[in-house]
Design a protein around this nucleic acid. Structure first.
Lengths: 207, 207, 207, 207
DNA sequence: TATGAATGAGGGTTCATTCAT
DNA sequence: CATGAATGAACCCTCATTCAT
């Protein structure tokens, strides 16, 4: 079990580890810079600098600005997916109100990446394909949860609702950026609205 | 009362008319390009080309990319304002459901400029001042209508509701861009949600 | 001697007069703007505006920016020539010191156009030909005066001296732009130097 | 003590060396183009082309046209300063005539950059600050030498003389560009004038 | 003939991307 | 494989000049 640097088998492992760290650093910096400046105004050079990476190295990992944006979007999608999966498991035994709150809370937790993802989606960052996939995953996950939470909900209705619900969650994010003087009231109102939406759907389907 | 061609008053008229047409063409093209690409990715050159204008002429009318964005935003604001004013006058004698529908319909009517305005607002497009003003006008107008439609509504609550409602109308716009296969169902759902929102507010305040 | 506007013979005269005024106004504005901004930074549009002329009219009189600069240079040359001619006639009976002072004074009188002419000459305004001609005229005139003032001066020497003297007068202009705190002393010094130059030449040739 | 190619210390050397060459080439081209066309008419594109540099590279080294002009001016200032320092050390034991000649010779040595500096100073080239600093340094250095050369010279008088002297040296440069047929005679005349200026000052102060 | 809207070449500058080291 | 200097297409904007009215 020698760790001599001449051992070819183990030689790449530290490198791989370093690579992983590099990628992580780049992605963090990417989220930061894209969030602050938007897709177009963000520069690869700044992302490289902020992550302590040489520009050439950055391009080894992400061959294109768009590729980086895509990866970031994918990562965000993964986070959301994880959140949704987790949420789904907690749904049994939750009231619809609590499910609604859980959606909102999840959105607020994703704060650090939120506006960035929206920026990339809206502004045209990420290839159209990536965006489509992202949307699909998101909608599927939300629809799943809705089905879980409202047993009698028809699949088609769940799909429709998921789209609407996601738009509302987007609004949650937008509202979280408002001046603090009104933010609290606004968030409460949004929370109330989401609850109402789910509850009413439950009554229609379940009652 | 001759209209001879030497009449100086009439001499400039064609010029002014052409100018108006130019400006209109540019603004139309601006809305298109900004919508498609977002503020940063949109290029003045393309806007000029798309409107059949020489780049120099474009700059005669709009001395800056930002100035063009501002003008476009202002135009949109004007349209929205007009819509809101009109809506306000029709509110007396409307049920809350119909008011809700009217909001949604207004949004759908503004279609040709919708996503563009959203792009400019979300991105760095247009000066920050212009954006703020736009938001203020919009919120004020919506809040006014809400007060009109729900007499007992406290002003503070109207303000909060207006923000939420506007976010929902933004969602309407987003939904109107979906694939046509689901669009109809989605719009119906959104419409229902908006109705529900207003009605519930009416019950809280009015009942 | 009717002045009716229908009299075809006299009809063009007022026009000519107006034309002359136009040209004068343009040239005045040209001197101003070229002086303030330098040749390149000066714009035909501003010169037109400042002279109350339509840009199209400006181009009728001066078909090119360079043509305008040339005309301005020519005008300046004319002024200088006039000054020199006048000076020449006063030379008989003047001491060399007074001639030197007269040169300096003439330069200071031309103040309103001075730096402008230098700018156009140095910066590359005016065609090379025009510049050459200007130089020639100037040198010839100065040399003439020198010959007049120093009777025994050989023609060749006069030529050489004229070039040097003109450079010194250029320095006078430069110095006249210095901060006022030192300007007076500087001008006195320059004046002294010019006197010394002429006097010493007089002694060499005349003594 | 191997100089293997993995030696990091040596690895960057060639790069730095190339960088230095690049910068030098750019500056040379800059001097050329600015001299020929003046500050405004000079284009970064031409400077890049003339120095065999891609436009992007030029901007890596000099982030602005003005920055390039400033650097060029600074370089010239440095050269002048060096020349003046050297001259100052040689002054003890020199006659005033030889000091005068030394000034003129120094100016002629700086030939390769001369008219360029004048162009940048007269035009809007380089930031106003840089220009002021340059003038100050120049005047101070010349005044120093004058004090050294003419011991009894009052400081105030030295200051005034430095300004006048510098203007005369500027004339030297201008004259060095004349047609060769007269250049020699002109230079001799200028040389004579400068000598006379210093000598006369020496007599006033010293005698 | 006078006017000024229209034109478009060209200028300074940025930044995604490549490739020699 | 890492590095960062080098590249050049493309952007926003200006202004001399033209020409339809």
């Amino acid at each position: 079990m020698s760790t001599s640097s001449t051992d070819p088998a183990r030689a790449t492992e530290p490198k791989r580890e370093r690579g992983r760290l590099r990628v992580a650093a780049i992605m963090t910096a990417g989220v930061e810079v894209f969030s602050e400046k938007g897709y177009d105004a963000a520069t690869m050079t700044e992302i490289a600098a902020r992550s302590g990476t040489a520009i050439g190295s950055l391009y080894r990992f992400f061959p294109t600005k768009e590729a980086l944006a895509d990866a970031l979007l994918l990562q965000y999608a993964q986070h959301v997916k994880n959140g949704l999966t987790e949420l789904k498991q907690q749904v049994p035994g939750m009231t619809l109100e609590r499910v609604a709150d859980a959606f909102v809370d999840m959105m607020l937790l994703l704060r650090s990446q939120r506006s960035f993802a929206i920026a990339l989606m809206d502004a045209r960052g990420g290839s159209a394909d990536e965006r489509k996939r992202f949307r699909k995953v998101m909608r599927g996950g939300v629809a799943d949860i809705l089905c879980e939470a409202i047993p009698a909900l028809p699949a088609a209705k769940a799909k429709v609702m998921s789209v609407v619900l996601i738009h509302m969650l987007k609004a949650v994010v937008g509202i979280a950026d408002e001046e603090s003087s009104v933010r609290v009231a606004l968030l409460a109102e949004m929370r109330q609205l989401v609850r109402m939406y789910l509850v009413s759907a439950g009554q229609q389907s379940g009652g």
